[in-house]
Amino acid sequence: MKAFIFPGQGAQTVGMGKALAEAYPAARAVFDEVDEALGEKLSDLIWNGPIEDLTLTANAQPALMATSLAALRALESQGVKITDAAFVAGHSLGEYSALAAVGSLSIADTARLLRIRGRAMQEAVPVGMGAMAALLGMDFATAAQVAADAAQGEVCQAANDNDPSQVVISGHKAAVERAVALAKERGGKRAMLLPVSAPFHCALMQPAAEAMAKALAEVTFRAPAVPVVANVRAEAVSDPETLRALLIEQVTGSVRWRESVLWMAGQGVSEFWEIGAGKALSGMVKRISREAATRNFGLPEDVQALSA
């Protein structure tokens, strides 16, 4: 049994998806559709940079979705169907890619939503006020306790439960710095601040959640062709209105990726196909479920290897 999984922010690189667009007309059509939806040549930024502009949250989010959907269209041109997957899931913004992949959202609506989401998340907290940090060698329960103990009246919470030894925390900068020091005292292997522009997936993102509630209310959600394993539930959801509500909750809620992978494995998923840029999720999957097989599809040769 397979699951298709879609990467989140941090996977972006200049040039991603360009070879797919050149090799597969259906992949090129995705980038054209995203450009038209946004009223600008995002594809030019994706393929030519500069990386500083591509990494801006408002650009990176629709860019990564476009690359994932282009890779999926390339796979479909080789006979792969979305219904070949028992489940789909995405890491943070990757959940939007997953929803577009299964037809819950149109690609154009998804691109516009991610542009709004990226801007709203960036603007929710003044620059320099928030931070995120990775705590390595520490399980989720311990990391969550470290975050809580470091808060001291500020916001500091576990944001991403990525795999058994990597938890990302988010919140006020001073509180996150306290948590980094505390994690080292409590036996963490490593703890380091991350080069991010805002403290995602914590209570400080409430203004962004409100902006997304308004934006999501204005788009059509359809029943997904394949159940979506939602970040904040770590289980499959198929009801369109529930999926809409969970995307709002996701802005301030934890990304329960480790639990999501374990849930899918528990349902019989033995193969995870990472569709889009990078291989970060595949690495996490292998650390979560050692017996799971992973494949990556971000380049034409990845797609061509299927028929071989």
Rank of each mutant, 00 (worst) to 15 (best):
A3N: 12
I5T: 07
V14K: 01
G15S: 12
A26N: 09
E36R: 10
G49W: 00
P50M: 04
E52C: 09
E52A: 14
L54I: 04
L56D: 08
A58W: 06
N59T: 12
N59G: 12
L72C: 10
A74L: 03
L75Y: 02
D84G: 04
V88K: 02
G90P: 05
H91Q: 11
L93C: 09
L105K: 06
S106V: 14
R115F: 07
R115Q: 12
M121G: 07
P126A: 10
G128C: 10
M138G: 01
D139V: 09
Q145Y: 01
A150S: 15
Q152F: 08
G153T: 12
E154K: 14
C156H: 03
A158N: 04
A159Q: 05
D161F: 10
V168E: 04
A174L: 14
E177C: 12
A179I: 15
V180G: 09
A183I: 08
A183P: 02
E185D: 14
R186C: 12
G188H: 02
R190F: 01
L193C: 05
L194I: 01
L194S: 06
A198I: 05
A211G: 06
A211L: 03
M212T: 04
A217P: 13
A217R: 09
V219E: 11
F221D: 08
P227H: 07
E235L: 08
S238V: 10
S238T: 15
L247Y: 05
E249L: 09
Q250P: 09
S254A: 15
M264A: 02
A265W: 09
G268W: 11
S270T: 15
E271N: 04
W273T: 06
G276S: 13
S282I: 02
M284P: 13
M284E: 11
I288N: 05
A292I: 07
A293M: 08
R295S: 15
R295F: 10
N296M: 06
N296I: 14
N296L: 12
L299S: 13
